[in-house]
Structure formats: C-alpha cells, structure tokens
Amino acid sequence: MQEGRSRSFYILAAFFALFILFLYGPTITIAILSFQGPKGGLTFPMNGVSLHWFHDLFEQQAVGDIWGSFRRSFALGLMVMVTTVVISVMAGLAFRKRFWGSGILFYLVITSLIIPSILVSLGVGLIFNQLGFDIHWTTSGFGSQLTWTLPFGLLIMFAVFNRFDKAYEEAARDLGATSWQTIRYVVLPIIAPSLIGVALFGFTLSYDEFARTLLTSGSYNTLPLEIFGMTTNVTSPVLYALGTLTTVFSLLIIGAFLLIAYSARRRQAAKGSNAGDGMV
C-alpha cells in the first residue's frame, strides 16, 4: 500500500515535531533556568549553575506555605480521584439502562463541563457564605472540583461502555449469575484498566485545578493557588524551581498511572482474556 514515505509525510512530521516543541519547549526552558546560580535572573543567560533555588524552597517559608499547600492539594487530589471513579462507574452503569430522564441528567453533565469555572467558584462561595457554612477545601473546594472531574470521568465511561460487548454479561446471566455478581465478577474486571484512566483524570485535574478552587478553598490555599499568589510577588527563579518540582511530580504520577494501566492490560492478556479488546 505504501510506496516509501511521501513528501507530505515529512512536511506533516516536521509540523508535528514543531508542535511537540511548542508544547514542551517552555516547560523545559524553566526546568533549565531553575538551576540558575544564586545571582541569576528570570531569563537567560545562566549565571552559573546551582541548586540554590531548590534549596530555597526547602529553607525559608517567606514565600508562603508551599509544603502545606502541597499536602492539601495531594490529599484533595486523592479524595477527588476516589470519588470520581466510584461515582463515574455508577453513573456509567446507570446510563446504560437508558432510564427515564437520563437525557436531562446528561445535559446537566455537559453543562457542568462547559460552564465557566469562575461561575461554579462564585456560586458555591456565595451559598456557603449566605448559609454561614465554613468555606474549606475539603467541603466547598472538594464539591466544586467534582463538577469538573465528574464530566470527564463519565465521558470516559461512555466511551468504555460503547465498546463493551454485551455478550459477556449475557453469558454470565445464562450461567445463573445475579446482576450484582455480573457486575462484580464480569463487568468490573473487564473495565478495570479504563478505570485507571478515570483515576488519572480525577487526580491530575484536581491537583492542577485553579478557577473552581479560587473562591471555594477558604483560608488554606491549594498548591495552584499558592503558586499563582507567588507570581504576583516573587520575581526570582524560585518560582521556576517550584514549577519544575510540581511538573516532575505530575509526570511521576502520570507515569505511575500509565504503568499500572499497561501492566493491568498485560495481565489481562496473559490470562488469555481478550475481554478488553478494542478499548482504548
């Protein structure tokens, strides 16, 4: 079918390479600059090479409560992740039943996805204020972030179930499994690798969320809020050092999830099951 690479392949490949450079170039730049010498500034040239700015992060707390906000973001990320996975799976199963009124719920989910984030932030903040509830990242912040992660989780579940072969369930039922047993021993193991994807979205979207947390996190900042606060008053490469560290952390998390998903699929394949076939 293919007679060597055409000219358009090379043009497109070059375009793709430029796009990747565009995506990663700036991040790589600040990663390099975060190793500036103690007298270095926010731009090139490098004024020596040192770990000075990383050291700064661990030393002084004049720039705010970085580690406290990191712990909060991490905890919140885990909370949002678990909740997103559980609720998305349940809702995904529900939508397969095409129950009465599911159309309205679907539009609600889409609204949650397309509504400007600041509106969620503002509305939730106002409600908590007027009702006299304490605005806190574990309550108002948690709920606001779910309005962002749940639509993604559900859309992934739609994609998963649309490619799901109903014959497996029918076979289980024919063998006398109850509907709970069918879900527990047939459906869930088959969709398990995809759930890792939902978990990845849940955690990372929460960990990086800014706008929906802005007015709903209360007096304790999450990491993105802390970093944004720093942009207005910190003008040294310590900002880059922090950015590099959190990006490395994000990359480690992504790598871990991808590895788990990959090995889960391998294990499925090794067991001779082709149940997850065709699901990406």
Binding site: S88, M90, A91, F95, F99, L108, L119, G143
Partner: peptide
C-alpha cells in the same frame, strides 16, 4: 435502578452546579 445508580452524580451536580447557578 438507573436513578439509584446515578443518584450520587445527581446529588453532587444539584448541590455544586444547579444550586450555585
């Protein structure tokens, strides 16, 4: 059963999306 399974989603969206709007 459908509504039961979807109820956690509905509760979250009602509390943190519909009410705020």
């Amino acid at each position: 059963v459908g509504w039961l399974l979807a109820s956690p989603l509905l509760v979250i969206l009602a509390l943190f999306l519909v009410l705020p709007i």
